[in-house]
Amino acid sequence: MRFRDVEHLFRLAAIFLAGTLVFVVAKAEMRPKDFGKDGHYRPAAVDEIRARAISYAGQTACADCHSDVVDLRAQARHKAVACESCHGPLATHATAMSDGTEAAKPVRPDGRTLCVRCHAAKTGKPKRYPIVDIKEHAGDENCLSCHKPHDPRIS
């Protein structure tokens, strides 16, 4: 009876030891070698996040080819509004044009919906920011029939 009790304990110890061994080996095998180099994390993850492709090229990227628009905007009231704020993400367009590859021509923004997004009168907008009551100001007319998008001031 006693002999079997001890055997029972040994078995338990063996399982425990084997478990520890599996854990240690698995950890050594599966954990990347450089884990913890810069902190408690996997350094390669940073490179993976950095490798993501961009969608917005940034305003400076447009200047090489669209200098006419850039010049027009330089003194205009929209100078602080980035191209892609109205035109949407155009990184694929910019790279395609400089690489000479085929790409869809960017669609022109619709003057009926674009301007309203930023200029519709609404409580909470800063006091100095120019807003208009759309119905009163334009009715159903397209904003672009009076305003030029890159230099919106009329007078």
Binding site: V46, I49, R50, A51, R52, A53, I54, S55, Y56, G58, Q59, A80, V81, A82, E84, S85, C118, P126, Y129
Partner: peptide, 22 residues
């Protein structure tokens, strides 16, 4: 991610890029 893939390339985050009022 603060657009980490952009700021490490010298660009600003997408939200900063398109913000019309700065």
């Amino acid at each position: 991610t603060l657009c980490y893939h952009r700021i490490t390339k010298g660009l600003v985050p997408a939200c900063v890029e398109v913000c019309p009022t700065g």
